[in-house]
């Protein structure tokens, strides 16, 4: 256990020096949100609030959906590539090491989400409401996305396929949420968005909390939690087989 714990600082250092990930999950959203800040200007939404607030919040959450790619990359590098041999020969628990990488990936994704909340809140005056609640929801979303990515990497043999499927998961959630184009009001899609789409579950949990409707916010938080429990069980079963 201690031996695995000693690897954690180095895993986090590696992630912090992964400039491509930082570019895609931090710099790109900051640029996009800033562009929307200037494009939307003083435009208001149906409730009379600045429309930019909704956009900034949703975009912050959208990029959490892709945080799972961090876990995919590091699990692949350390457990399914040339480095696997060295890790297998080392006197430490492989499943524990895999867990530590996954937790580091989740933590890093949450940290990037925090930086986005900080940037939009302090830099662009976005009203997030209770920051602790927001970070809690972002953490749940990041954990869920990472677990989905783990399911993908444990389910397919080809890492590239896992990455593409991970992209499909992220983009699919965005499309179903109607952010790219309006989605028809079919019962199936409404059900998915109400119970399964993590992007809208997180957005609703934050939105209701901002309106002080915490009983509704808890419902969406609870649905996210159920998603985490289910995906965790699947990861556990698949991971035991694969590692």
């Amino acid at each position: 256990m201690m031996r695995v714990l000693r690897t954690i600082p180095y895993t986090l250092i590696r992630m912090s020096r992964d400039y491509i990930t930082l570019l895609l999950l931090l710099v790109v959203p900051i640029i996009l949100i800033t562009i929307f800040y200037f494009v939307l200007g003083d435009m208001k939404n149906q409730y009379g609030d600045l429309a930019f607030y909704d956009t900034a919040q949703l975009m912050t959450l959208v990029f959490q959906l892709f945080g799972g790619s961090i876990v995919i990359a590091y699990i692949q590098d350390d457990l399914f590539s040339a480095r696997r041999q060295r890790i297998l020969v080392a006197p430490m628990s492989l499943p524990l090491y895999a867990l530590s990488i996954s937790l580091c990936g989740m933590f890093f994704s949450i940290f990037l989400g925090f930086l986005l909340v900080l940037f939009t809140g302090v830099g662009l005056n976005v009203e997030w409401g209770n920051v602790f609640w927001v970070m809690y929801i972002i953490a749940l979303l990041a954990v869920l996305s990472s677990l989905v990515s783990l399911i993908l990497i444990f389910s397919v043999k080809n890492i590239k396929l896992a990455e593409r499927l991970s992209d499909v998961y992220g983009i699919g959630c965005v499309v179903l949420a109607g952010l790219f184009f309006p989605i028809p009001d079919y019962p199936v899609i409404t059900f998915i968005n109400e119970y399964l789409n993590p992007l809208l579950l997180a957005a609703n949990a934050i939105s209701y909390a901002q309106s002080n409707l915490f009983s509704d916010a808890y419902i969406y938080m609870f649905r996210l939690g159920i998603g985490i429990v289910i995906t965790f069980i699947i990861v556990y079963v698949l991971g035991r087989r694969k590692i």
Binding site: R3, A82, Q85, A90
Partner: peptide, 30 residues
């Protein structure tokens, strides 16, 4: 396992880490 060292055929170090950090990683593992 603690008494074995393996030099793998493919280079299996961490490219993002410094030489010292790489060695420290494995020192900790052992």
């Amino acid at each position: 396992k603690e008494k074995i060292g393996l030099v793998t055929q493919e280079i299996s170090i961490f490219p993002e880490l410094t030489a010292k950090e790489n060695a420290n990683f494995f020192a900790g593992v052992y």
